[in-house]
């Protein structure tokens, strides 16, 4: 996966299927990844994950070259990857219920 991507995105490892935002990307901005240009619907803050490719439900989400959870929905190139579309595959005590609870009612903005 060698490709050109927006300077506001950071690729931590060549095997990753998500980028990390290094700066705020405002609503309405255009994001370019591998020659595709996408309009950003809602602002993305620094430190969030953006899909580097199209991801199917159940696929592994890779960051730092490591598995950090699985997709729970179809994720398109350029989408924000967060609690709405991925989950932890780790021990339940630390995972979805708590995270969902922590973030319920809160949308990425």
């Amino acid at each position: 996966m060698t490709d050109q991507y927006d300077a506001r995105l950071l690729l931590l490892h060549p095997d990753d299927n998500v980028f990390v935002t290094r700066a705020k990307i405002a609503a309405g901005d255009s994001l370019s990844i591998a020659g595709n240009h996408m309009a950003v619907a809602a602002a993305i803050l620094p430190g969030f994950k953006v899909a580097r490719t199209s991801i199917r439900p159940g696929d592994s989400i890779k960051k730092y070259g490591a598995h950090i959870g699985s997709a729970t929905a179809h994720i398109s190139l350029g989408d924000v990857v967060h609690t709405d579309n991925m989950k932890s595959d780790y021990i339940p005590t630390y995972t979805e219920e708590k995270i969902t609870e922590y973030t319920s009612g809160r949308k990425i903005s």
């Binding site: 990390v20 935002t21 803050l45 620094p46 430190g47 969030f48 994950k49 960051k63 730092y64 490591a66 598995h67 950090i68 959870g69 990857v81 967060h82 609690t83 991925m86 989950k87 932890s88 595959d89 780790y90 005590t93 630390y94 995972t95 708590k98 995270i99 922590y102 973030t103 809160r106």
Partner: peptide, 23 residues
């Protein structure tokens, strides 16, 4: 527990992702 509300607000989604940051 290690995963706190502020972590998700900062863009981290899972415990394993947070730990990877330290790792």
């Amino acid at each position: 527990g290690s995963f706190a509300p502020g972590n998700a607000e900062g863009g981290l989604t899972t415990q394993e992702e947070k730990s990877m940051g330290a790792y």
